[in-house]
Design a protein around this nucleic acid. Structure first.
Lengths: 149, 149
DNA sequence: TTTAATTTCTACTAATTTAATAGTATTTAT
DNA sequence: ATAAATACTATTAAATTAGTAGAAATTAAA
């Protein structure tokens, strides 16, 4: 019942981009370095995020990435779902046909509730929330408002 | 972010035992057969459940398994935790030392909240709840109150 | 127009985890 | 004794995860 590192890295990646909202595009290399994540791996992770419009990309020299829309309009679910795939805790929740007893299954009903709980939580949290929390913590630690990666 | 089949099988196993509360011990063979799960696999799954006192075992001929305490005193968490191991969605939630930034990490705070949400949910659901729901469904489908496996 | 820097695409791979299977040992009612 | 059940230990095939590697495409700038 672990979240994949893809999802975790994806959220950290988006948080880093969120800190640069409306500024110059950021190089993946820089985020990868500051976050201590393989650049090649991040470059794979960012593709589905781009496909969903969560990031805008600029190719070629001086290219890079920017948030595709305001951080306030990006939820945790938006980020995690394309990386994690099906978000349900058990296959049968979204694919009832894999089991003949799905309609009457008591445990499936529970897995369904649990999955909905998680998804509902993720929908309530925006990238803006994370950005704000991050800045708040940084200030209280550093007394600084500099958010360079 | 999937629940393991160990946990799912474990819950179904306990539900089957719950339907027999205070009656004769049940053979794992019978549960395995009725649930369509490998008996050998179930016999591994039941060991940590026994260790936590969730089931009582009787060895030898005419042995079998019974619930270790009333279904009303067994929560979903009780069943899943020994099967799943650490219940947090991300390692750093319960092992902050694996990352130097845990105390200040914004994403870790989110994973922590999410994990607590799940665990809280699982603590609220008892095996008795599942047993009752099962019986209710059976009655409305069959008009029967026979719960043989 | 060349070069350097960047994203994009495709393929491969090592390590780990999962979901079992298999066989033997132990216990116990009959 | 023996048959029937749990308990224990070892092995394994398949899938997933978490990357690595390298070439291709794109573009700003020299």
């Amino acid at each position: 019942m672990r979240l994949s590192t893809r999802s975790r890295y994806g959220v950290r990646l988006m948080l880093a981009l969120g800190l640069y909202e409306k500024k110059e595009p950021v190089f993946l290399k820089d985020i990868a370095h500051s976050e201590g994540i393989s650049e090649k791996y991040l470059s794979q992770i960012i593709i589905p995020l781009k496909a969903r419009g969560l990031v805008t990309t600029f190719r070629g020299a001086h290219g890079g990435y920017l948030l595709g829309r305001p951080a306030s309009e990006i939820t945790l679910r938006d980020i995690i779902e394309p990386l994690e795939g099906d978000m349900s805790l058990v296959d049968c929740v979204n694919a009832p046909d894999i089991c003949g007893k799905s309609t009457e299954c008591v445990t499936r009903a529970v897995w369904n509730e649990m999955s909905s709980l998680l998804i509902g939580f993720m929908e309530k949290i925006t990238l803006e929330d994370l950005v704000k929390k991050y800045k708040k913590k940084k200030e209280s630690c550093n007394g600084s408002t500099d958010y360079t990666i």
